[in-house]
Design a protein around this nucleic acid. Structure first.
Lengths: 245, 245
DNA sequence: ACAAAAGTGTTAGATTTACACCCATGA
DNA sequence: TCATGGGTGTAAATCTAACACTTTTGT
């Protein structure tokens, strides 16, 4: 917060004000890295791949790729996700860029981190992808590159998001019980929730459609099944933004 | 959310798993752009510069620069801020990357957006920077490049941040009255706040130190002056993270 | 004395939390 | 019939929101 004398040489040219030659700066590559969250066996998991780089042999890394010369980074992230999971329409959100020099041994690579929420059951992981595995988030200790830091940032973002926005549905199958939804919230937020209060809160959001179906093959009283009310959700988003209404 | 058959050609190589040649991808430049917030005349303002690029002649743009080949993007943002405002220690937070192809006329430039909070009075804007101006956020309609979009994203982030974190102090002088602080909150959140409730809430945070000084030269009853309690704030942050305590 | 903003408590309403019993199913 | 989790309501506590008068200063 302290004032400082200005350096003597102010920049006379600037990328936003003058058309300067930027070809000398084309020394940095851009990649995307995806933290793909899934929910299985009451645990929040992320999809990782084994790195073959010497420096990181045996360590796990995120799924990512170089952004092509004419590609929108968002599209690159969607491409990685489609290629690896086979899922086309999924929840994807950019988190932030990571660009410390030295973070990638192949050269200067600035990566843009995304997180994605998918239903594990919908993903088609090919056999040849036997280096792909779902890891419980809680158990991930170290990773290749700065990917642990990226995972931490994405997980923190997901937690914050979930507190205010109903994104959790993207991690569940189309039909789910309130218990499954609560397990999901408890796994992500790492807290225990009161069952009655949770149900009241979820129901008051008005985003569930009662399917009038029951669980099957459970060794106890079966639970009712619901689906997410996409239309009601869209309407809420719009009125929140002052578009509708 | 629908499943799709996998494309036939899975990538056999990947930037995170194999050491691939990335020199062919060195076609993209990285820049940083800073949304510098200041608070003056009870308005939230941002520091902008006139663009001289033909395409954007007369339009306002953010302060930014190319990230140097061996430079951490965070450092590049600090560099831009120091160079332009003369302020060394300031609040800076990365928001996200913007990288649509075609967003910059000089070529493919992916920019990392930051926002910064400064005390306008501490900034030293040099005379030769007569193209630099403070603009009320509310009045900014269009800008050069995709900078309006960047400003919107940074302003949204600031609003969210302010709801839970006491970052507003960075915009005020060291000594301030509760009225000034309330004006700041009202300007950023674009709401009217109840004076008594606001004071109660702020006081309950325990982050103000009563300086036992009064305003001067005001044509009405002078207000007490406070300063931000940096130590108490740090202690709170630490205990929240489970470090201390 | 007047204008202008500072300072200060209380009450109603809304939200959040804590908590215990009966029910439906499969084994 | 037993074990397991499903389903449900109420009361206390906390937080939020609404609201008006007196005080201090400069003019």
């Amino acid at each position: 917060m302290s004032s400082q004398p200005l350096p003597h040489s102010l920049p006379q040219k600037n990328i936003n004000t003058h058309l300067i030659e930027i070809k000398d700066y084309f020394k940095i590559a851009i990649s995307v890295d995806c933290v793909i969250f899934g929910f299985d066996e009451n645990e929040l998991k992320i999809l990782l791949i084994k790195s073959d780089l010497d420096q990181f042999r045996g360590k796990w890394s995120l799924l990512g790729d170089i952004v092509r010369t004419d590609e929108d980074p968002d599209d690159a992230a969607y491409r990685v996700l489609l290629t690896r999971t086979g899922i086309q329409d999924l929840y994807l959100e950019q988190v932030q860029a990571f660009g410390k020099p030295g973070r990638h041994p192949a050269g200067r690579v600035v990566t843009i981190a995304y997180y994605s929420l998918i239903n594990i059951r919908h993903s088609i992981l090919k056999n040849l992808d036997n280096e792909l595995h779902w890891h419980p988030v809680k158990k991930i200790k170290q990773m290749a590159f700065d990917h642990k830091e990226i995972v931490d940032a994405c997980y923190a973002r997901l937690r914050e998001k979930l507190k205010d926005h109903p994104v959790g549905f993207n991690l569940l199958p189309r039909k789910f019980s309130l218990r499954e939804l609560q397990n999901l919230y408890e796994a992500i937020l790492a807290v225990k929730l009161d069952r009655r209060n949770f149900r009241k809160k979820i129901m008051s959001m008005g985003l569930l459609i009662d399917l009038h179906e029951m669980e099957d093959d459970v060794p106890h009283r079966p639970a009712k099944l619901y689906k997410f009310n996409e239309d009601a959700f869209q309407k809420q988003e719009n009125s929140y933004l002052g578009i509708d209404d």
